[in-house]
Amino acid sequence: MDFWLDVTVVALMVSTSWIIAIRYISSGIKWLSFQSLMLSLLTGVLAVETGRTDLFVIAVLTLLVKAIAIPYILYRTLRAVGVDRQAEKTFGRDRLIIAVLAMWAIGYYVTPDFGLGYGHNVYLSVAIGMLLSGVLIMITHKKALMQGIGLIVIENSLFLAALSTSFGMPFLVDIGIFLDVLVIVVLISALSFRMDELLSSMSIEKLRRLKG
């Protein structure tokens, strides 16, 4: 079973790294969907391993909400404003890839070795690396939708961190987080659409004028 855990974690890392470097927003959404799918797989594997039913439920919820509903909402918004939108980035691909590698390194470096004989908690390292990469996505991308995607990546990373340290959060908390994320994505979609209508652009750099 550990084999499947490793495979899904590697898939998470690859998808996260790739989201930063994508050229079109639509491919970003596809990779986000893939990432969430892998997360739900990972939860499922853990559920089988530990035999806990609540993890099953959460795996199914992750699949439904994060891998299907959220990408669908984002994709609809994107279609409304034009599918072939490019993701504007502040830096080039190569530099971003290097930055993401640095994030993984930092994630590994800062994760504590609890000294319990299990060695390093690699899943936590990946979670922290994903968290930092998610923030990096929000920093380097200019489009509002990509901010939403970055936020979901951060959410996924926190989910992974909870899984890796204590087999997930309490059930009710997880349900609440799912609802929150769903609402946030709906809001981001609606506001991005509105921004595109008003400013004919989704670039959040146009929001500078809102400064007091």
Partner: peptide, 16 residues
């Protein structure tokens, strides 16, 4: 400077 991304950057650096 009013840019959301700059604020995120400050947070990011602080966290790291």
């Amino acid at each position: 400077n009013g840019s959301v991304r700059s604020y995120l950057l400050y947070l990011f650096i602080t966290v790291i």
